[in-house]
């Protein structure tokens, strides 16, 4: 499964309780109130476990984690893809 699809499924299941109506690749998790700062850390734990990567403290910025598209780009860069 593609990274974007895995992340999308996690967000829908974990934070939107199945309601994906307003979620697209560029929907801001934080601005749109989908995920709070604790939720972002839950996302980080999920990414680390699922993709066997380590997210450094310095990488905890919206450019890497605030929407599906950003997460996909970040994860692929960590996986060397």
């Amino acid at each position: 499964m593609e990274v974007a699809e895995v992340v999308r499924e996690f967000i829908i299941e974990y934070f939107l309780f199945g309601d994906d109506e307003n979620l697209n690749s560029h929907t801001s998790f934080i601005e749109d109130g989908i995920v709070d700062s604790t939720g972002i850390l839950e996302l980080v734990a999920f990414l680390e476990e699922t993709f066997s990567i380590h997210v450094e403290d310095e990488a905890l910025i919206p450019e890497n984690l605030d929407c599906i598209s950003n997460v996909e780009r970040y994860v692929l860069s960590k996986m060397g893809g």
């Binding site: 934080i30 700062s37 850390l41 403290d57 905890l60 910025i61 919206p62 984690l65």
Partner: peptide, 13 residues
Amino acid sequence: LPQNLLEKDRINY
């Protein structure tokens, strides 16, 4: 909390 929290737009942890 990490140092320099307000220096750039980042996620709190």
